[in-house]
Design a protein around this nucleic acid. Structure first.
Lengths: 369, 369
DNA sequence: CCACCGACAGATAAGGTTTACTATGGGCCG
DNA sequence: CGGCCCATAGTAAACCTTATCTGTCGGTGG
């Protein structure tokens, strides 16, 4: 592997001169010398050693993005947005998928710190775990002190996100849309209680109902996970409960997709028997049957602005938080409420078969419930 | 930012001794000294500088994964598999999304080379572009010469992939399944002609038909892109043609999803009027209406084995190519062929409306065609 | 009792790059 | 015609870590 020393020797100049040419410094070098150096570099297939450069600059042009799960379309979109910005600015993007494991997240942050990454962008929301957050807080403070940028794109333990989406307003708008369709009894699959972003969305649900003058029935608020399986379980929990509902509003699309699948299994038709709404508008949402009413988040743009924020921080420019608007997307899964709300008084409707029935679910009529 | 020099000074030892302790070398250090050093490191919140280490080792514990598009679920799965292996082995994963831009891919490879990445894994297939591949070939040869591992998970210009999936056999199996259902006239949406993986799949299509004793009707082989939009266009092209077909086999799931959407728009029912099959089994495939018959690829495992291959290469162990089997997944989009094959003699069925009609597509009966 | 060995610690070079500082001319102003 | 500045080139230090080599000291075998 050719080093700059060899390039310099071949060109018959000092390493300093060679460095000035290949690193495009503004130090004056005569045209003839420059050409000789470039020729030598080409000859030797010289590629500068980013490690040596980084060692000197105390920083390497890399930004790390920490996501919960790279196979989740939400995060994939955000990462892509970060890449848009970062690549244009000459940075390389390192995607770190924590698999929702705090230990792994911590070790990624440590690794990024050890390689002097210029910035760390947290795409996902933090968990409310005091001990964990204390240690993470120390790490992040140290990174900032060392000149790196730290950006949060979702609510987290250390406070408000730097760039984010108005989660609460988005859910409130969806609740308002459901109310406009005639719903008064709207259930909410709230996601994990410890996840800050889920809290923000629950807050939006409460606000939406409050603005419509509807009291919150706590029995209709179901704590769940954040994936499809959790959506199915949430439906089961609602059907097993006593509180009536005509619509299910979900804290994210994956929950809604799970709810749709479970409702179909139970022979309930959407939106005739119950309306279902999601949040995020991941690309699948338009392709299900029925297609999913949801709230579109500008995820790619979120990633772009997240990087832009980091870039400004690195340049020492003044920073301001940003909150991006969401957009309501009404598709087929929402409609007018049924004459008679769920759940009907059939407790076994809520027991979940452990294996999927081999016969396709028969379409039950409402009267059958 | 504390360096090992400061740790050593605080502990009252030389940098050499401090290094031996913090880098877990097997050089003997007395227990008392070791404890003093560890205490000092804790005190100063010392994090070793990966750049300095890499400069010395001529390699940094990072593997780069080059994908076409990180938002494509296919690649997201593969990346996750690579991460599984890499994280366990102490490597950090850099995901590089080339956005199918050759220039960007080249610049990523250059960047990875410049930071002395231990390995580069190409998740996607190469394009048949001789000039481009010549230059890429030089880069990769240089990287290998410098001790880095280069792994291909799909067919590419430089020959067979190192670890891959049996694309041809998978498609052939799907063709056989369609034949078993009674289909004889099976169309194929083949993807981009220049993409090596698309060629392998086309080859599988030909083989499948040959094994069933069916001659290939070249009019039924449609060159397309590799995304949903291309699937819709492929359906249009088939309907505009003269050759009869009762099934559409697609080179990937995104094409099949596009085909399903377009067929629904045209009022054709799947599988009653025509069967549709995909390839990859991305997670959406199970959630569409009708759900998609497809071929499951062990994508996450592909990523894992891809890393394992790189790891062996770095350890200097002997290497052997691996070809992983696929699995047929028959869902709702395939069935017995209709009595009368498509296309019916209505040429305007193939003209695509530029905007989606505002009224939902009415369900036309077969007799209406 | 001496030579040697093992356990441990320190000094130093090397890895590749950039940059502040130094050096050498030639041209220009006085 | 001499001093000075500018353009250009070279020298060497610094970034941080680790491996190699050297040194010391207590102990052990002959």
């Amino acid at each position: 592997m050719a080093s700059i020393t060899e390039v310099a020797r071949l060109a018959g100049v000092s390493t300093a001169t060679a460095s000035r040419v290949v690193s495009a410094s503004d130090y004056p070098v005569s045209a003839a010398t420059r050409e000789r150096v470039l020729e030598a570099a080409r000859e030797l297939d010289y590629v500068p050693n980013a490690l040596a450069r980084g060692l000197l600059n105390r920083r390497i042009p890399v930004v790390g993005v920490i996501v919960h799960d790279i196979t989740d379309p939400y995060f994939a979109e955000v990462v892509r947005g970060v890449e848009d910005g970062a690549t244009a600015a000459g940075y390389l993007v390192i995607t770190c998928s924590s698999e929702r494991d705090a230990e792994r997240e911590r070790s990624y942050v440590r690794l990024l710190r050890s390689m002097r990454a210029a910035a760390v962008i947290f795409a996902g929301s933090g968990l409310d775990d005091p001990q964990l957050n204390a240690e993470m807080g120390r790490h992040l403070a140290a990174m900032r002190a060392e000149g790196a940028a730290v950006v949060h794109l979702s609510p987290h333990a250390m406070g408000e996100p730097d760039v984010s989406v108005d989660n609460a307003a988005g859910i409130a708008a969806m609740v308002a849309a459901l109310v406009a369709l005639g719903h008064r009894r709207i259930a909410f699959l709230a996601g994990p209680a410890a996840l800050f972003v889920a809290r923000a969305r629950l807050e939006g649900y409460r606000r939406g109902l409050a603005e419509a003058g509807i009291a919150v029935d706590e029995r209709l608020v179901v704590r769940t996970g954040f994936d499809r399986e959790a959506g199915a379980l949430g439906v089961d929990a609602l059907l097993a409960g006593e509180a009536a509902f005509t619509a299910i509003c979900c804290a994210n699309d994956l929950l809604a997709l799970g709810a749709l699948a479970r409702l179909a299994e139970l022979g309930l038709e959407v939106p005739r028997d119950v309306s279902v709404a999601g949040f995020d508008d991941i690309s699948v949402a338009a392709m299900t049957a029925p297609s999913l009413s949801t709230v579109r988040l500008p995820l790619r743009e979120l990633g772009r602005r997240g990087f832009a924020h980091a870039d400004r921080a690195l340049a020492g420019e003044p920073l301001a938080g940003e909150l991006m608007a969401t957009r309501l997307v009404l598709r087929e899964s929402t409609g007018a409420p049924p004459a008679e709300p769920l759940p009907a008084s059939r407790p076994q409707a809520a027991t979940r078969p452990t294996t999927r029935p081999t016969t396709p679910p028969t379409s039950r009529t409402r009267g059958a419930r």
